[in-house]
Simulated assay, not measured.
Amino acid sequence: MALIVRSSAIHAAGCYTTTRIGRGRRIAEYTGPRISKDEADEMYQDAPLTYLFGLGNGDLVIDGHCTAMFINHSCEPNCETEVVRGRVWIKAIKEIAAGTEITYDYHLYDGDDDEQICNCGTAKCKGTMFSVDEVKKRKKARKSD
Rank of each mutant, 00 (worst) to 15 (best):
residue 3 L to E: 03
residue 3 L to R: 01
residue 4 I to S: 02
residue 7 S to L: 15
residue 10 I to F: 14
residue 10 I to T: 09
residue 13 A to Y: 12
residue 13 A to P: 04
residue 13 A to S: 15
residue 14 G to A: 08
residue 16 Y to L: 13
residue 16 Y to G: 11
residue 16 Y to P: 08
residue 17 T to F: 11
residue 17 T to H: 08
residue 18 T to G: 04
residue 18 T to Y: 03
residue 18 T to Q: 09
residue 19 T to P: 05
residue 19 T to C: 12
residue 19 T to Q: 12
residue 19 T to Y: 06
residue 20 R to T: 05
residue 20 R to P: 13
residue 21 I to F: 12
residue 22 G to C: 03
residue 26 R to W: 08
residue 27 I to F: 08
residue 30 Y to W: 07
residue 30 Y to L: 03
residue 32 G to W: 09
residue 33 P to C: 02
residue 36 S to Y: 00
residue 37 K to I: 15
residue 38 D to T: 12
residue 38 D to Y: 00
residue 38 D to Q: 09
residue 39 E to L: 04
residue 40 A to W: 01
residue 43 M to S: 05
residue 45 Q to T: 14
residue 46 D to T: 11
residue 48 P to F: 12
residue 50 T to L: 00
residue 53 F to K: 07
residue 54 G to L: 01
residue 56 G to Y: 00
residue 56 G to D: 12
residue 57 N to Q: 11
residue 60 L to P: 01
residue 63 D to W: 00
residue 63 D to M: 01
residue 65 H to W: 15
residue 65 H to L: 13
residue 68 A to S: 06
residue 68 A to Q: 02
residue 73 H to R: 06
residue 77 P to K: 00
residue 80 E to Y: 01
residue 80 E to Q: 12
residue 81 T to R: 08
residue 81 T to L: 11
residue 81 T to W: 00
residue 82 E to D: 10
residue 82 E to M: 07
residue 83 V to T: 15
residue 83 V to L: 13
residue 84 V to E: 10
residue 84 V to P: 02
residue 88 V to P: 09
residue 88 V to W: 13
residue 89 W to N: 07
residue 89 W to Q: 12
residue 91 K to T: 05
residue 94 K to S: 15
residue 94 K to D: 15
residue 95 E to M: 04
residue 96 I to D: 00
residue 96 I to L: 03
residue 98 A to W: 07
residue 98 A to F: 13
residue 99 G to L: 10
residue 101 E to L: 05
residue 101 E to D: 06
residue 102 I to K: 04
residue 103 T to L: 05
residue 104 Y to D: 08
residue 104 Y to T: 02
residue 105 D to W: 04
residue 106 Y to R: 02
residue 106 Y to L: 05
residue 107 H to D: 12
residue 107 H to E: 06
residue 107 H to K: 14
residue 107 H to C: 06
residue 108 L to R: 00
residue 109 Y to M: 05
residue 111 G to C: 09
residue 111 G to V: 02
residue 113 D to C: 03
residue 117 I to R: 09
residue 119 N to I: 05
residue 119 N to H: 13
residue 119 N to M: 10
residue 120 C to N: 09
residue 121 G to V: 00
residue 122 T to P: 15
residue 122 T to G: 05
residue 124 K to W: 15
residue 126 K to F: 06
residue 127 G to K: 05
residue 127 G to T: 11
residue 129 M to I: 03
residue 129 M to N: 12
residue 129 M to Q: 15
residue 130 F to V: 04
residue 131 S to N: 13
residue 132 V to Y: 14
residue 133 D to I: 07
residue 133 D to K: 10
residue 134 E to T: 09
residue 135 V to F: 08
residue 135 V to Y: 08
residue 136 K to E: 11
residue 142 R to C: 02
residue 143 K to G: 11
residue 144 S to L: 07
residue 145 D to V: 15
